[in-house]
Each structure stands twice: as structure tokens, then as C-alpha cells.
Simulated assay, not measured.
Amino acid sequence: MSSGTPSDWVPRVLPHNAEASARLRDWLLERKAGGLDAGGLDLSDSDLSGGNFSESWFGGTIFTNAKLADAELYRSDAEGADFTGADLRNASLVRVNLDDAVLRNAILDGANLVGASLYDVDAKGASLRGTALMGCSLLHVDFRGADLSNAIVEENTFKVKVDNATVFDGLRGTLFGPIILAADDGEHTLANSQLEAWINARGGAVRVLTPRLRSR
């Protein structure tokens, strides 16, 4: 098992799915270095809070309503995973691949997503209060209805979709746009100074950067 997890750590609630539960039990019994291979398995409704799943394989894994608070997922591959309604409070998702994942209504308050990759992610209604997003690549992420209160960005690619229900209060740092604003009268592209003013008028404190042109 990966270093950093106590040898006596066990899930508070095992997955209801028999195959997923057996895979997790076998992995825990081995206690060897290396991540969990749970690709495509159903871990919904489990409580894996505090576990160390560094460098694990979660491609297509179902985490619906699972609890992963304070869990360590460093460098794991969760491409296409479904975290709908999952509790990821204070989890470490550093350099995790979340491309094509579903984070709808997930709770990521206080989570660390530094260096994570989020491409084509459904994060509608997600809570990212105080989430560290520095260096996180956000491309085609749907943040409609999401709460980004007090989240921190630093030179982030921030090509996302938002709406008037998206919360930006306390969002701070630097980012690159543009974003798509979904409104009653259609979709609007906001970039550069217009984007900066729009976010900051909603309680943010961000600076929108202009991409540097490469010299020949």
C-alpha cells in the first residue's frame, strides 16, 4: 500500500458492489506499495475518508455519493470517473487526471487540485469553497451553479462555462480566459478586462492575464 496510510486504516463503509468491495479488501490485505486498480468499478456510497490512494487507477470508476474527505489521490488517474454528489472535502487531488469526469454537486471544499487536469468536466452545482486550483488546467469545465467562494487560482487556464448562479465571492489570483456566460438571452464570451471586471464585480479579486505572443 502507498506510504502515508496507517497500516490499520480501513474504510468506514465498504462499497455495496461485491466486486468493488472484494477488490478493495484484497488491496488492503496485501498492504503493498502501489495504488488501487479500481477502474470501472462501482464504489458509490462507500466511505473511504482518510485513505491513501496515491497513483491509483480510477478510470471510469463510479464514486456517486461516496465519501473521500481527507483522502490522498496524488497522481491518480480518474479520467471519466463519476463523482456525482461525492464528498472530497480537504482531499489531495494534486496532479490527478480528471478529464471527462463528472463532479456534479460534488463537495471539494478545501481540496488541493494543484496541477490537476480537468478537461470537459461536468461540475455543475459543485462546491469548491477555498479550493486550491493553482496550476490546474480548467478547459471546457461546466461550472454553472458552482460555488468558487475563496478558491485560489494562479495562472490558471480558465476556459469554463458559468451562469449567474455561479458564486465568485473571494475567488482570488490570476487566470487566463475566456469564459462562456450562459444567460437567459444566450451565451456570451467574456475575456480580458471585461472578464476581470465581471468576476470582481461579483466579489472576486482576480487579475485576468493576456497570453504572451511567442517571439519568432
Rank of each mutant, 00 (worst) to 15 (best):
R25H: 13
I107Y: 12
V94M: 04
F53W: 03
N65M: 13
N192S: 09
L93T: 04
A111W: 03
D184P: 03
W57E: 07
A78Q: 10
N97Y: 07
L118I: 05
A165C: 06
A151W: 04
R212C: 03
D109P: 04
A116F: 01
W9E: 06
E30K: 15
S193N: 07
F176D: 01
A123N: 04
T174A: 06
S46N: 07
E55G: 04
A91Q: 07
A111S: 09
L148S: 06
D42Q: 11
G35A: 09
E187T: 15
V102P: 01
A33E: 13
A182H: 14
A123Q: 07
A20G: 14
L190M: 01
D122I: 13
R216Q: 07
S117F: 03
G59I: 15
L209A: 00
P178R: 04
R144N: 08
R95V: 08
D147E: 11
N17R: 12
D45C: 15
R23V: 11
H140I: 10
G203R: 15
V153W: 00
G203N: 15
L118E: 01
A111G: 02
D77P: 01
V102W: 09
V96I: 08
D99I: 00
P6F: 06
S54L: 04
D87P: 09
A123C: 04
D99E: 14
W27L: 12
D185S: 15
T131W: 01
D8K: 13
D87C: 13
L209V: 01
S7M: 06
I107T: 13
E55Q: 15
A165K: 15
R23C: 06
I179M: 00
D37G: 05
G173I: 08
A151G: 03
A191W: 00
S46D: 06
T131H: 08
G177R: 00
W198Q: 05
N97T: 07
A111C: 03
N97L: 10
L133T: 01
F53S: 06
L41I: 02
R25Q: 14
T64L: 08
T64C: 10
N17I: 13
D45W: 13
D8P: 08
L29I: 09
F176I: 00
V121N: 04
A132T: 01
G204L: 09
E72C: 06
N97Q: 12
E196P: 00
G186N: 11
D47C: 10
P211V: 02
D42P: 05
A182W: 12
A201T: 05
S137E: 02
L190Q: 01
L128H: 05
F176H: 02
L103H: 02
A132K: 00
T61V: 09
V94R: 04
D147Q: 11
H188A: 12
A123T: 08
V141A: 07
D122K: 01
H188F: 11
R216E: 07
